[in-house]
Simulated assay, not measured.
Amino acid sequence: MPRDPVTRGRVDVLASGDMTQTQRVVVVGAGLMGSGIAQVSAVAGHDVVLRDVTDEALARGRAGVEQSLNRFVAKDRISRDDADAALARITTTTDLDVVAEADVVVEAVFESLEVKTGVFTEARPAGPARCRAGHEHLGHPDHPDRRCHRTARVGGRHALLLAGADDAGSASLVRGYKTSDETLATARAFAESVGKTVVVVNRDVAGFVTTRLISALVVEAVKLLESGVATAEDIDTACRLGFGHPMGPLQTADLTGVDILRNASRNIYTETQDEKFAPPETLNRMVTAGDIGRKSGRGFYPYD
């Protein structure tokens, strides 16, 4: 199976069943992360329903999957037939009741606890009793608003790929205080079924592991840039050649979204009061100005 496209942020996973068999996967949120999760799930052989609130968002998400698969075909990473078959496994809907028929539900909506809690609240009555609930980094697995049926079945999953689209991704499985071993095993099985390497995070802390590390690196890189120590290009080159990173921290920020990384850093700083996570002025000004990376056409680099 080809390695997956870049997926970012946290995703909530509600899962059950034997993940070695074809599953019905519902991805709530058709943005870049959600469409990426839909793609890797479909390529792995799962049937996927991509859900968002508007037909326009769904059209963009599906088009993004098609473009990504076409790039894999052009690079001989996947056959044309396999790409077409994967795309055919993805259907779209604006109806959240579709979770009632799901084996796996992946929540990948906007990075806001209020928005995510709203999705959980709306989906909970329709969700099958066999589902296991996950969480996102703005909340906690044990938070009352994030619970699904039984708190012992609440766990987390997050898929975060910091490198380029040609590199394999990892899935961090985050244990809440009452997360059961069964829930963890089910989430691991799903992550591995879509080609992820699993990392278990035993305690729920802001940023978990990967976001905490990349946030510290991006914040320091921005400080070096704004103080004139080095250019963005040279900072990224130093990290690529010096540390073997496929992408430098500022390139990663542009790809992930400058706003997303700023918010992640700010959330970690709020919880830890550790100054190394405090977003620098340049990062805040870029977000205010709308220069938030590739999706806006300009971040630390310009994009066509």
Rank of each mutant, 00 (worst) to 15 (best):
E66Q: 12
D181Y: 09
S68W: 04
E114N: 09
G139C: 06
A129F: 12
H143Y: 13
H135D: 06
P125T: 10
D52Y: 01
T186L: 15
L161K: 15
E107R: 03
T179A: 07
T92M: 03
S112N: 14
A129R: 15
H158V: 15
Y177K: 13
K196E: 11
E56D: 15
E114I: 07
R77A: 14
Q67D: 10
A85M: 08
R62G: 02
L113A: 11
S172C: 14
D167Q: 13
D76I: 08
A126G: 07
R132A: 05
A108I: 06
R80Y: 05
V109E: 01
E136F: 12
V194Q: 03
T54Y: 09
T179P: 01
A163W: 09
E101C: 04
D82Y: 09
L162M: 08
H140V: 04
T179M: 09
T186K: 05
G195T: 03
R188E: 11
L58G: 01
R89C: 01
E182V: 12
H158S: 12
H149Q: 13
E192H: 02
A163C: 09
T186C: 09
E56N: 13
P125A: 10
V53K: 11
R71E: 12
L173A: 04
G169L: 04
P141W: 02
A191T: 03
D103K: 03
D103N: 13
R132N: 04
L160A: 10
F120S: 04
C148G: 12
R62A: 13
V105H: 00
H143L: 10
T179V: 07
L184F: 06
T186W: 03
G134T: 04
A102S: 06
V53P: 00
R62I: 13
R153D: 14
S172K: 06
Y177E: 14
A85Y: 02
A191N: 05
